[in-house]
Design a protein around this nucleic acid. Structure first.
Lengths: 244, 244
DNA sequence: GTGCAATCGAACCGATTGGTTCGAATTATT
DNA sequence: AATAATTCGAACCAATCGGTTCGATTGCAC
């Protein structure tokens, strides 16, 4: 009984209704309908951008009446934010699982780098990012929030992974934060900007990504890896005799 | 005489008037007025995006009548393209001059990297890029053209510079194209995405850029530099190497 | 001065915008 | 079947959109 008639007064999902909660008990609790609206909004927003998209388009695309949409979302901007929030979730979901498995450092980095590059440059994700970036000019908080809960969170995971590797004596890094950025950028070398500016019309293929990532990881390990370090240091003792 | 009455029939700047050239002699030849329009367009487009910007805003901002604007530019899109073309020009102008001076390899790379990072992440340029990216969803050719005549051209210059360094025996690179991308990305490590998503509200400072670039250049030279190579090779001959 | 091209400025076009309202229709609970 | 909640769908709002037109005004060249 409780389930059939959603209890609005004690609804845990309150943050969705802050604006609606007035005299009338708020409708807009059906998650199915909500998804339906967002799905329509996705199609429209993603391929027209925030400004060019019209609520009427979304109405049409979602097969939901305009009035209903305004029951679920206060206005266009709020609907857009909800969409982006969901997109962000699906984009970055499970992306960092590879990092939990830490057999071989090099292969783990390669595996993760490939997943990263593949995701970030996929047509769908690029379109979504374009939409967010375009809107960030007028709604900076939206872009910031997207970055914070998406790329930033991923960056932190990478940094944590590097920290663990340092702990294990596999890496030697002075600025872990910077190193994490460097690793990420090396995996995307050139791809992100090419894609985001529509210079590339198609997402890069597996083979190309593999080539880039392996090269990047090589570069990364050559700088921060401790593998060759012992040898390298023993080597430098020839030149630097000042050591006790 | 010729100057006061621009000769429309043999006008060299024909591509601007293709749409106007009908019965009436085309106006819209005054470069000053043209700049005036574009300057107004810049302010409006940059801070509202393509869709949200209105021709009336531009009219107001440029202090030019609407009719006149349409004498100079066929429509909104064409005006926007002209603006972007100009922006692109000013952004990338002189950016690569540093590469012509090739005293010390490391310092040249550092110097260039700093210029690059400083430009790309400056508030003005970030805003412009956001506008282009946002519009690239609907007008992909525009983004592609921007990239092609901007970042791409720069990338080619970097690659050429690396080629020259290889020629001089200072670098050893198998995939120069990739290396050029890697270098660029290392110089921007994290900055570009943070800025473009408005996660950073301010452009990075000189000190931060210096730190990033020096680290990146170090990484780059450690991988591709021939400085330590001789020593390293004599060392590695023990362990390696199936590669030609 | 005279003439003429360029610009102005305002009105106008049809279409569309985000947003609101409300009675009718639908749906499910009891 | 009765009841209550929810959604629908259409009409409506003032505002704005890009784009066009045209007569009045300006300013420069002769």
């Amino acid at each position: 009984m409780v389930e059939t008639q959603p209890n609005v007064e004690t609804d845990p999902c309150g943050d969705l209704l802050d604006h609606v909660r007035r005299g009338r008990p708020a409708a807009g609790q059906d998650p199915v309908k909500r998804s339906q609206i967002i799905e329509g909004a996705r199609r429209v927003f993603i391929d027209k951008g925030f400004e060019a998209a019209s609520m009427n388009d979304i109405t049409r695309e979602a097969s939901v009446s305009k009035g209903t949409i305004y029951v679920y979302f206060a206005n266009k901007e709020e609907l857009f934010e909800a969409l982006i929030e969901e997109e962000r979730g699906t984009i970055f979901k499970n992306m960092y699982d590879v990092l939990d498995n830490a057999d071989d450092l090099r292969e783990t980095l390669v595996k993760f780098g490939k997943v990263l590059a593949l995701k970030i440059t996929s047509a769908k994700v690029i379109q979504a990012q374009r939409t967010v970036i375009g809107a960030s000019d007028r709604i900076p908080e939206l872009g910031a929030r997207f970055y914070e809960r998406g790329p930033k969170r991923g960056h932190d995971k990478v940094a944590a992974f590097l920290d663990a590797a340092i702990e294990r004596g596999l890496l030697r890094i002075d600025d872990v934060d910077l190193a994490a950025y460097q690793f990420t950028e090396l995996c995307l070398a050139g791809l992100f900007r090419q894609c985001i500016f529509a210079y590339r019309t198609k997402a890069p293929g597996q083979d190309e990504i593999d080539h880039i990532v392996r090269s990047g990881v090589g570069m990364f390990l050559k700088t921060y890896g401790t593998e060759n370090l012992a040898a390298e240091e023993s080597h430098q003792t020839i030149a630097i005799e000042a050591r006790p």
